[in-house]
Amino acid sequence: MPSLKDLRNRISSVKSTQKITSAMKMVAASKLKRAQEQAEAGRPYAERMNRMLVGLSSSLGPGGQGPKLMTGTGSTQTHLLVPITSDRGLCGGFNSSIVRETRRRIQALQAEGKTVKLFCVGRKGRDVLRREYSSLIVESMTDIGRPRLSFADANEIRDKLLARYEAGEFDVCSVIFNRFVSAISQKVEIPQLIPVQMPETGSAATAGDGGKQAADDPRKRAPYEFEPSEEEILAELLPRNLAVQIFRALLESAASEQGARMTAMDSATRNAGDMINDLTLQYNRTRQAMITKELIEIISGAEAL
């Protein structure tokens, strides 16, 4: 049986934890609002970009000669995975779901005999993956988007990816991130970035809402004219599209992180409340029991006289 002093100490420590978690919840809620607006504002742009690419690729025709970013290197031997996680913890299953998905992907690819490389964005994912796959990590970046996520961050990642792609270090690149659905729900998505995957042929993940948009199909219409020329447009559009898709993943991930943290901190606050109630009850019972015991001692002492 814990003494009254122990109980008092525990109650006060749980109370201060609760203060911290509820403050974190408030902070996450206000950050979430901004991040969510940013993420949702970014979606139409990324979709239009995708639609334009679909138009371009359809006019190139099947088997057409395009830049390497579009057609790939002709091999799918080396895969580069880009898991996007947060720099800070205390956000529920946010990071672990990304890590779990990354691990599953690595195992599936290795089972097929492919080479896998990792480009970790975010401290938490890097720390966990380094334990198991330290030899696979070719690069990692932390403190992305601090103090504020900007397009320049996406450009930086894009440039690093392109440099490695040009050097022939990988053939296929996919990014793994949490798509923001709502404050309490995030969905892990793995769109392929290099070579560019068209929504129609792509996996369910890339088809998403981009696929629906493409349904009012530019393919059925007359072919596009190009100004200046297809090659020049593609040479500019493809790297730009890459940056836009990365930026979108970063935005979605940032919004998801705040959502996950808010939910996690909300339930932590509630748990702390329950715990305080239990402990207070136990404290009062113990106190009462002690008073009763003392009374009995006094009474029986008096009776004995």
């Binding site: 334009m52 138009g55 371009l56 530019p218 219409r221 007359a222 072919p223 596009y224 004219e225 190009f226 100004e227 200046p228 020049e232 447009i233 500019e236």
Partner: peptide, 11 residues
């Protein structure tokens, strides 16, 4: 660009 313009992509 007016309505009914031929499809085009430009930088």
């Amino acid at each position: 660009v007016l309505a009914g313009h031929a499809p085009m992509i430009s930088t």
